[in-house]
Protein backbone atom coordinates (compact mmCIF):
# COMPACT_ATOMS: atom_id res chain seq x y z
CA UNK A 1 0.00 0.00 0.00
CA UNK A 2 2.61 2.50 1.11
CA UNK A 3 4.95 1.67 -1.76
CA UNK A 4 2.06 1.98 -4.20
CA UNK A 5 1.14 5.39 -2.85
CA UNK A 6 4.70 6.65 -3.14
CA UNK A 7 5.07 5.28 -6.65
CA UNK A 8 1.77 6.79 -7.71
CA UNK A 9 2.68 10.18 -6.28
CA UNK A 10 6.00 10.14 -8.11
CA UNK A 11 4.19 9.17 -11.30
CA UNK A 12 1.69 11.99 -10.74
CA UNK A 13 4.48 14.50 -10.16
CA UNK A 14 6.24 13.45 -13.34
CA UNK A 15 3.07 13.69 -15.39
CA UNK A 16 2.29 17.07 -13.87
CA UNK A 17 5.74 18.37 -14.76
CA UNK A 18 5.27 17.30 -18.36
CA UNK A 19 1.86 18.93 -18.39
CA UNK A 20 3.09 22.18 -16.89
CA UNK A 21 5.87 22.31 -19.44
CA UNK A 22 3.21 22.01 -22.11
CA UNK A 23 1.33 24.87 -20.46
CA UNK A 24 4.39 27.07 -20.88
CA UNK A 25 4.38 26.65 -24.63
CA UNK A 26 3.09 29.36 -26.92
CA UNK A 27 -0.67 28.88 -26.93
CA UNK A 28 -2.14 32.22 -27.79
CA UNK A 29 -2.78 34.29 -30.88
CA UNK A 30 -1.28 37.76 -31.23
CA UNK A 31 -1.86 40.13 -28.34
CA UNK A 32 -3.56 43.35 -29.37
CA UNK A 33 -5.06 44.79 -26.23
CA UNK A 34 -4.68 45.15 -22.50
CA UNK A 35 -7.56 42.75 -22.03
CA UNK A 36 -5.74 40.16 -24.14
CA UNK A 37 -2.78 40.33 -21.76
CA UNK A 38 -5.13 39.73 -18.85
CA UNK A 39 -6.79 36.85 -20.66
CA UNK A 40 -3.48 35.16 -21.44
CA UNK A 41 -2.41 35.55 -17.85
CA UNK A 42 -5.63 34.14 -16.41
CA UNK A 43 -5.81 31.33 -18.94
CA UNK A 44 -2.29 30.24 -18.12
CA UNK A 45 -2.99 30.49 -14.40
CA UNK A 46 -6.01 28.24 -14.74
CA UNK A 47 -4.04 25.84 -16.89
CA UNK A 48 -1.31 25.62 -14.25
CA UNK A 49 -4.01 24.86 -11.69
CA UNK A 50 -5.98 22.51 -13.90
CA UNK A 51 -3.16 20.27 -15.08
CA UNK A 52 -2.34 18.79 -11.64
CA UNK A 53 -6.05 18.09 -11.15
CA UNK A 54 -6.29 16.37 -14.53
CA UNK A 55 -3.13 14.36 -13.88
CA UNK A 56 -4.53 13.09 -10.57
CA UNK A 57 -7.18 11.24 -12.55
CA UNK A 58 -4.82 10.21 -15.32
CA UNK A 59 -2.04 8.98 -13.06
CA UNK A 60 -4.34 6.96 -10.81
CA UNK A 61 -5.96 5.34 -13.85
CA UNK A 62 -2.70 4.53 -15.63
CA UNK A 63 -0.95 3.42 -12.46
CA UNK A 64 -3.85 1.13 -11.56
CA UNK A 65 -3.93 -0.27 -15.07
CA UNK A 66 -0.28 -1.22 -14.72
CA UNK A 67 -0.20 -2.27 -11.10
CA UNK A 68 -3.59 -3.71 -10.17
CA UNK A 69 -4.75 -5.72 -13.13
CA UNK A 70 -6.18 -9.18 -12.81
CA UNK A 71 -6.94 -11.85 -15.38
CA UNK A 72 -10.48 -12.44 -14.26
CA UNK A 73 -12.91 -12.18 -11.39
CA UNK A 74 -11.20 -14.85 -9.31
CA UNK A 75 -10.26 -12.64 -6.44
CA UNK A 76 -11.82 -9.73 -4.61
CA UNK A 77 -9.96 -6.57 -3.71
CA UNK A 78 -9.76 -5.14 -0.21
CA UNK A 79 -13.12 -3.98 1.13
CA UNK A 80 -12.33 -0.26 1.21
CA UNK A 81 -15.65 1.53 1.64
CA UNK A 82 -14.23 5.01 1.64
CA UNK A 83 -15.71 6.30 4.84
CA UNK A 84 -14.05 8.56 7.36
CA UNK A 85 -11.21 10.87 6.56
CA UNK A 86 -10.27 10.34 2.85
CA UNK A 87 -13.50 11.64 1.29
CA UNK A 88 -13.57 14.55 3.71
CA UNK A 89 -10.06 15.56 2.78
CA UNK A 90 -10.97 15.27 -0.89
CA UNK A 91 -14.08 17.38 -0.32
CA UNK A 92 -12.08 20.01 1.53
CA UNK A 93 -9.39 20.20 -1.14
CA UNK A 94 -11.78 20.35 -4.10
CA UNK A 95 -13.97 22.80 -2.21
CA UNK A 96 -11.01 25.10 -1.52
CA UNK A 97 -9.93 24.86 -5.17
CA UNK A 98 -13.41 25.67 -6.42
CA UNK A 99 -13.87 28.60 -4.05
CA UNK A 100 -10.38 29.82 -4.79
CA UNK A 101 -10.91 29.77 -8.54
CA UNK A 102 -14.26 31.44 -7.97
CA UNK A 103 -12.62 34.37 -6.17
CA UNK A 104 -9.48 34.61 -8.26
CA UNK A 105 -9.61 34.84 -11.24
CA UNK A 106 -13.42 34.59 -11.40
CA UNK A 107 -14.95 37.36 -9.34
CA UNK A 108 -11.86 39.58 -9.25
CA UNK A 109 -11.53 39.37 -13.02
CA UNK A 110 -15.22 40.08 -13.37
CA UNK A 111 -15.06 43.16 -11.17
CA UNK A 112 -12.18 44.45 -13.26
CA UNK A 113 -14.15 43.94 -16.45
CA UNK A 114 -17.14 45.73 -15.00
CA UNK A 115 -15.13 48.47 -13.29
CA UNK A 116 -17.55 51.26 -14.04
CA UNK A 117 -20.17 48.77 -14.96
CA UNK A 118 -23.56 49.90 -15.97
CA UNK A 119 -25.44 49.01 -19.10
CA UNK A 120 -24.86 45.75 -20.88
CA UNK A 121 -21.25 45.06 -21.61
CA UNK A 122 -17.57 44.92 -20.71
CA UNK A 123 -15.12 47.59 -19.65
CA UNK A 124 -15.39 51.30 -18.98
CA UNK A 125 -18.44 53.09 -20.22
CA UNK A 126 -16.51 56.08 -21.49
CA UNK A 127 -13.67 55.94 -23.97
CA UNK A 128 -11.67 58.18 -26.28
CA UNK A 129 -13.03 56.65 -29.43
CA UNK A 130 -16.54 55.37 -29.80
CA UNK A 131 -17.48 53.13 -32.71
CA UNK A 132 -21.05 52.14 -33.36
CA UNK A 133 -20.98 48.61 -34.73
CA UNK A 134 -24.17 47.39 -36.31
CA UNK A 135 -24.60 43.78 -37.30
CA UNK A 136 -26.93 42.66 -40.01
CA UNK A 137 -27.12 39.60 -42.18
CA UNK A 138 -24.29 39.19 -43.16
CA UNK A 139 -21.92 42.09 -42.61
CA UNK A 140 -20.93 44.66 -40.06
CA UNK A 141 -21.02 48.39 -40.41
CA UNK A 142 -18.83 50.58 -38.21
CA UNK A 143 -19.65 54.20 -37.63
CA UNK A 144 -16.85 56.29 -36.09
CA UNK A 145 -18.88 58.54 -33.82
CA UNK A 146 -18.21 62.25 -34.35
CA UNK A 147 -15.94 61.57 -37.32
CA UNK A 148 -18.44 61.14 -40.11
CA UNK A 149 -16.67 57.98 -41.18
CA UNK A 150 -18.45 54.69 -41.75
CA UNK A 151 -16.94 51.38 -42.80
CA UNK A 152 -19.47 48.99 -44.30
CA UNK A 153 -19.15 45.51 -45.67
CA UNK A 154 -17.11 42.37 -45.37
CA UNK A 155 -13.42 42.67 -46.12
CA UNK A 156 -13.31 46.44 -45.55
CA UNK A 157 -10.58 47.36 -43.12
CA UNK A 158 -11.37 48.75 -39.67
CA UNK A 159 -8.50 51.01 -38.60
CA UNK A 160 -7.85 51.71 -34.93
CA UNK A 161 -5.19 53.80 -33.18
CA UNK A 162 -2.74 52.20 -30.79
CA UNK A 163 -2.68 53.10 -27.06
CA UNK A 164 -6.26 54.25 -27.08
CA UNK A 165 -9.36 53.05 -25.31
CA UNK A 166 -11.96 52.16 -27.89
CA UNK A 167 -15.60 51.49 -27.14
CA UNK A 168 -17.65 49.44 -29.52
CA UNK A 169 -21.35 50.12 -29.14
CA UNK A 170 -22.92 47.06 -30.64
CA UNK A 171 -26.34 46.75 -32.11
CA UNK A 172 -28.18 44.53 -34.51
CA UNK A 173 -31.00 45.17 -36.88
CA UNK A 174 -32.17 41.64 -37.56
CA UNK A 175 -30.86 38.60 -35.68
CA UNK A 176 -28.33 38.03 -32.92
CA UNK A 177 -24.72 38.51 -33.97
CA UNK A 178 -21.62 38.63 -31.84
CA UNK A 179 -18.67 40.94 -32.24
CA UNK A 180 -15.39 39.18 -31.58
CA UNK A 181 -11.82 40.35 -32.08
CA UNK A 182 -9.58 37.38 -31.26
CA UNK A 183 -6.51 39.61 -30.92
CA UNK A 184 -8.33 41.64 -28.26
CA UNK A 185 -9.85 38.51 -26.63
CA UNK A 186 -13.15 40.34 -26.31
CA UNK A 187 -16.60 39.50 -27.48
CA UNK A 188 -20.08 40.88 -27.01
CA UNK A 189 -23.35 39.85 -28.61
CA UNK A 190 -25.33 42.17 -30.84
CA UNK A 191 -28.90 41.86 -29.68
CA UNK A 192 -31.75 43.45 -31.60
CA UNK A 193 -33.43 46.03 -29.41
CA UNK A 194 -30.64 46.73 -26.98
CA UNK A 195 -27.22 48.33 -27.21
CA UNK A 196 -24.37 46.36 -25.77
CA UNK A 197 -20.81 47.57 -25.56
CA UNK A 198 -17.24 46.49 -25.04
CA UNK A 199 -14.30 48.73 -24.37
CA UNK A 200 -10.78 47.64 -25.25
CA UNK A 201 -7.43 49.31 -24.82
CA UNK A 202 -5.14 48.71 -27.78
CA UNK A 203 -1.47 48.25 -26.90
CA UNK A 204 0.21 46.74 -29.99
CA UNK A 205 0.36 47.53 -33.66
CA UNK A 206 -0.92 44.83 -35.91
CA UNK A 207 -2.60 44.06 -39.19
CA UNK A 208 -4.77 41.28 -40.47
CA UNK A 209 -2.30 40.56 -43.23
CA UNK A 210 0.39 39.65 -40.71
CA UNK A 211 -1.72 38.26 -37.96
CA UNK A 212 -5.10 36.81 -38.74
CA UNK A 213 -6.33 37.25 -35.20
CA UNK A 214 -6.59 40.97 -35.96
CA UNK A 215 -10.06 40.68 -37.34
CA UNK A 216 -13.64 41.31 -36.37
CA UNK A 217 -15.89 38.37 -36.89
CA UNK A 218 -19.37 37.24 -36.04
CA UNK A 219 -19.31 34.59 -33.34
CA UNK A 220 -23.02 33.85 -33.00
CA UNK A 221 -24.63 31.73 -35.69
CA UNK A 222 -26.65 34.17 -37.78
CA UNK A 223 -27.69 32.08 -40.74
CA UNK A 224 -26.51 31.50 -44.28
CA UNK A 225 -23.27 33.49 -44.61
CA UNK A 226 -22.31 33.52 -40.94
CA UNK A 227 -18.82 32.27 -41.74
CA UNK A 228 -18.17 35.12 -44.16
CA UNK A 229 -19.17 37.88 -41.76
CA UNK A 230 -15.76 39.31 -40.90
CA UNK A 231 -13.74 42.46 -41.32
CA UNK A 232 -9.96 42.87 -41.05
CA UNK A 233 -8.58 45.12 -38.31
CA UNK A 234 -5.48 47.31 -38.54
CA UNK A 235 -4.05 48.90 -35.43
CA UNK A 236 -1.83 51.85 -36.39
CA UNK A 237 -0.08 54.79 -34.78
CA UNK A 238 -2.08 57.86 -33.90
CA UNK A 239 -0.71 59.83 -36.85
CA UNK A 240 -1.55 57.15 -39.36
CA UNK A 241 -4.99 56.86 -37.84
CA UNK A 242 -5.63 60.58 -38.29
CA UNK A 243 -4.45 60.36 -41.90
CA UNK A 244 -6.73 57.44 -42.49
CA UNK A 245 -9.71 59.27 -41.02
CA UNK A 246 -9.02 62.25 -43.20
CA UNK A 247 -8.73 60.10 -46.32
CA UNK A 248 -12.01 58.37 -45.49
CA UNK A 249 -13.79 61.68 -45.00
CA UNK A 250 -12.65 62.97 -48.34
CA UNK A 251 -14.23 60.03 -50.12
Amino acid sequence: MKANVIAAVVFWAALTLVGEAFALSDLFPAVGSDQAKDFDHIFRFLLFLGIPVFTVAVSVIIFSLLQFRARGPEEDGPAMRGTGLPPRIWLAVTGCLAVGVMIYPGLTGLSKLQSTGSGFGWGDTDAEIVIKATGQRWFWSFEYVGQDVTVIGNGREVVLPVDASIKFEVNSIDVIHSLWVPAFRMKIDAIPGRTTFMTVKTIELGTFADQQSFRIQCAELCGLDHSAMESPVRVVTRAEYDDWLASQKSK
Partner: peptide
Protein backbone atom coordinates in the same frame (compact mmCIF):
# COMPACT_ATOMS: atom_id res chain seq x y z
CA UNK B 1 -9.94 1.23 -8.82
CA UNK B 2 -7.14 1.92 -6.35
CA UNK B 3 -5.85 -1.43 -5.00
CA UNK B 4 -8.58 -3.22 -6.93
CA UNK B 5 -8.34 -6.39 -9.00
CA UNK B 6 -8.91 -4.75 -12.35
CA UNK B 7 -10.42 -7.09 -14.89
CA UNK B 8 -9.91 -5.16 -18.09
Amino acid sequence: IWMGRLWL
